[in-house]
Design a protein around this nucleic acid. Structure first.
Lengths: 223, 223, 223, 223
DNA sequence: TATGAATGAGGCTTCATTCAT
DNA sequence: AATGAATGAAGCCTCATTCAT
């Protein structure tokens, strides 16, 4: 009718309507992209709606408001990453191998989930206000600590790990390197070149991270 | 930090008129706080202006637009941190002591400059678009690498550092831990408690970071 | 002209809600007046909105921005004038009578559509930038040339028109006089008095224009 | 000092200061370009000042305000065109040759002064408000009418011109074609192609205009 | 005669959200 | 369960103009 106007569009994409879960998923997928790309204030409900297979009204219908949508996005992305961590089976490995495997898996999963990283950065900009409000996110974090506790206990018992090895600190060490690797890639490579972010550079960095972590807790560790 | 005003920065619309440098400094001080707190899209020019000793109009007069102001804020905060790094004198120290000192200084300076951290996070959300545009930021980054190069060269020559020690990787290792410690404090402590962020916890973490970094490059390092 | 409102267009914020076409028409009617009166930069969106039966927000909803609104205004006014031209039936007239009729009709329609004239002037100030962007305006201009081509062909065939009579030049001759008569009335009458713009003066001018045009292409024309 | 800001510039171009007339001329030259290009509301005092060899303050010093500057621009451009007309000497020519010469000269002078044309268009958009205020413009317009009156008188006396030939109408006929040729070139060529505005097309049009004008008043005129 | 700094009003536009159906 | 139309508040920015020196 009036092709040049911006807001008054009209035609919906496909018609897989009448499937609430699919509609919600579709909204969340788009919203995840937009919030990860632009942040909470930077993302635009109109833009999200436009890219969606449904309408703006449905966003409000299902998620209440922009903040509600953001919170759902956050919870969904946290869940899926924690699921991934939970799938990691290290109970059968001896402590040092287990630690190595957990560290490498963390490094890799961060590299493979830049949207998660960006959303966590954004959430930190907001002082974790929204995950504090969440009722499901706190429940997700025990698994990884439990795993590390088991590894530490076994390692200390067998004498391969130093007695001051601490599960939480280990998680922090692993996470800091893995997170920063993705979160600060843009500014780091702008400042210092991208040599650490080539395939080769990333391989070296990954090895370094493992060495750092193991070196910090394994008795007599030699790279 | 707030060196340009001889009175507390809180007093409204008084004194210092007809002093362009002071006006600009005042604007930049407030804008730094707002951008660090709210991000680029989240910050509000009206709010910044209101907290300023001058008017909204002057922000545009001196900085052109919101993005221009943000870029100046970024440049100012990068400069002041790099100045701090440059002031660190480690040329006289033996390599391992020098590395320890650099690592501790980096850890501390990040803890003491949360605004810088937040602005760098925000800049990464924007894919480093604004520091890429900057003409002064790229010039600021050589100093720290030069220092680490000198330390590495001396350490390898004397045999205390491993031959694969690399200045850029060292900077990355130091930065990743120090940055993450501040940038992700909110989400990390929400997820895992704040035990690492008490005074005591920070002391332990600081020691761990030094051990990690030195362990990675010092021959036969024992914590 | 103002066919869409069933009540006088002056009444504020009443009736016709939930009637998009009427809302758009109402906006376009007011906007046409304002742009014709003040030009593109001189017109004021607030002012337009205020005179409208709807709100400023709806202008942006339907037309995107000020330039979008201006372009729609331009297209609407071009369309309505070309419609008028198309309604003129001269196919049955012998060539000289047809030419006379077309010239008189052009002269009259320009006199009766000062808004169109002003908008075309404004568009020329903008170097026709907006009609170049338009997808519908270029399509509107064939009709008048087709008519003149038919008249010329028949006139040359019967020997009443000179062999160098050219449809495009004829259109230009007719238009130049008719357009200038309205477009430059203000400066011309300020400079030389308004004797040509009284009813009597306009009658004389209209006759002169017909004589000029016919004199230029009719063989042995005598006024 | 602060290279990225828009308004806070600083360096003036050349230093031929202390010459009021030159400064005024310089301002008027630039202002003429800007007003002709953008119109009264579209032109920007900041922009004019920036392109000037002097400062914004001087514009206000010499011309009072934006409207004052516009009025001076208008007067200057009218004067210079009327000077040109006055320089045309046709007193010695026989009436038909004189008319031909005046028509051709008008056509040419319009083609060569597009800025004048644009300013007159703009002034008509403003309903000639500013030339009405002017005290010098009305005085400039007698010359051309006087010349045409002389030609008409002589022509009627010798019988070569029709008794209804009228100086004012002749001026109008000449002007309308000459003015429109320049003023509406943009929209006309967008609508109908630029064939009339090539060198060849303009030559044909110029001849046509002469034929139209002479045909309207010369007894038994044959092109 | 000249200038950089300063100003307030108001311009255009966008946003998240709600209404009526 | 779904939609196009509508909204008010507020956002960013620009303008012509004046001040202080």
């Amino acid at each position: 009718m009036d092709s040049s106007s911006n807001e008054a569009s009209g035609n919906r994409k496909t018609s897989w309507k009448k499937n609430p879960e699919a509609v919600k998923e579709n909204i969340l997928t788009i919203a995840t992209e937009e919030f990860a790309a632009q942040g909470l204030s930077g993302a635009n409900i109109n833009e999200i709606a436009k890219r969606t297979a449904t309408s703006k009204r449905m966003i409000y219908y299902y998620f209440g408001d922009k903040e509600g949508l953001y919170q759902h996005v956050l919870e969904r992305v946290y869940s899926s990453l924690r699921d991934m961590e939970q799938a990691l089976n290290v109970a059968g490995l001896e402590p040092v191998a287990a630690l190595r495997r957990l560290t490498e898996a963390t490094f890799d999963s961060h590299v493979n989930n830049p949207q998660f990283i960006r959303l966590v950065m954004i959430e930190n900009i907001h002082n974790a206000e929204y995950i504090e409000k969440s009722e499901i996110i706190p429940k997700l974090n025990k698994a990884i600590i439990d795993k590390l506790t088991d590894v530490c206990d076994r390692g200390k018992a067998s004498g391969v790990l130093r007695m001051d090895a601490d599960p939480l600190e280990l998680h922090w060490m692993t996470s800091s390197a893995s997170f920063y690797n993705v979160s600060n890639m843009a500014t780091f490579s702008t400042s210092f070149g991208n040599s650490l972010f080539t395939d080769e550079g990333q391989k070296r960095l990954r090895r370094r991270v493992v060495d750092m972590v193991l070196g910090a807790v394994v008795v007599g560790y030699q790279p």
